[in-house]
Design a protein around this nucleic acid. Structure first.
Lengths: 187, 187
DNA sequence: GCAAATTTTGAACAGTCATTCCAATAATGA
DNA sequence: TCATTATTGGAATGACTGTTCAAAATTTGC
């Protein structure tokens, strides 16, 4: 039998970038073949169809995001400091000229109307991220307060993820975060 | 000469709904002909092409949004009360089963990567809305504070516009708004 | 009531879409 | 070595894309 001449993960990483930038509908299989070097036959052999490929790419992105949260929590001196770091990193990202927001949020917005499986998947991933924040925050605050702060945090993240598309928004955003989430400076 | 058998505004209203729900790429001319009752020829006769049609629809949507802000400001007892009303209306909207967020935000996210004219248009409209809030707030606060509050407000609006996609989020959002923007209760 | 002007119609265009198919290729197990 | 099995290559599929065009239809000004 012929040997695979690609790594599933490498393909997915290229596909993530494409779908992330352009969205689901605007990314064609032809573009995917160019970005990955795979022919249509190989793509459909390895990943059943476009939708399954997208879902797997999105799942990989979500896993990266969640890993990144845990990593920053582990490296910071406190939960609140870790969150502050996460937010400043987000602001930093938004300065890039090829900034394209959050893949999960974009998917949610693009595919919500069709009652799509992919929308539900993206939505569930975002909910699980909120839960992760709530769990960490519950080390510092009581469970009710932790959940409330996690909801605030997600709202602000959603906010800055789209405010980031505005030109020269980085400076404003930093001040905005401090004003909206004063409790981040508590511990 | 044949008489027009449609009203430009009616066509646009139908088109707004379609583009708003599905986005630019996922809405085909064929769907537009169905939604409006116009044949392709008429559409291209009245609106040069798909992009121009989209832009006009988006412009009309933006004008509605801006009108709505001025209207609520006029009807409220104070600027801060008007903003509170605007936010609770937003939360109310998010409860609808056919909720599809904000057309401007969705456009911005969908079309940002291509350096698209439509993205720039959406982004500019959102910036002008922020300016409108800043102007109203400057009646109550000094200019610097007004601008800062407007940025906070926009961030929170962006946030709840996408948090609204999460299931059963309405109750949480109301509490979140109160926590994030305590100054709304000042006047 | 005729000619000019404008709009509608809907078929036709070339291109692209996601997907399929199968011959060609290459590695395995016997 | 040879059949079996897994994978690739790339042309072909039919459906759909945005757009164009010329003929038909209908109102206006004269």
């Amino acid at each position: 039998m012929a040997k695979k001449n690609y790594q599933r993960e490498d393909v997915l990483d290229n596909v993530i970038r494409l779908f992330w930038q352009q969205g689901y509908a605007a990314s064609s299989i032809q573009q995917i073949t160019k970005a990955t070097g795979l022919k249509p036959g190989s793509i459909y052999h390895e990943f059943e169809n476009k939708e399954k490929l997208f879902q797997e790419a999105l799942g990989r992105y979500a896993a990266f995001s969640i890993d990144s949260i845990h990593q920053k929590m582990a490296n910071a001196t406190s939960v609140n400091m870790a969150i502050k770091q996460i937010l400043t990193d987000l602001v930093e990202q938004s300065k890039a000229c090829d900034y394209c927001g959050c893949f999960l949020i974009k998917t949610q917005l693009e595919l919500a109307s069709q009652g799509n499986t992919l929308y539900q998947f993206a939505s569930a991933q975002l909910a699980s991220i909120e839960k992760i924040y709530a769990d960490y925050l519950s080390r510092v605050y009581n469970i009710e307060q932790a959940r409330a702060y996690a909801a605030q945090l997600m709202t602000v993240i959603f906010g800055i993820r789209t405010y980031g598309y505005q030109a020269d928004s980085a400076n404003t955003i930093t001040q905005t975060i401090n004003a909206l989430l004063p409790w981040l400076n508590e511990h």
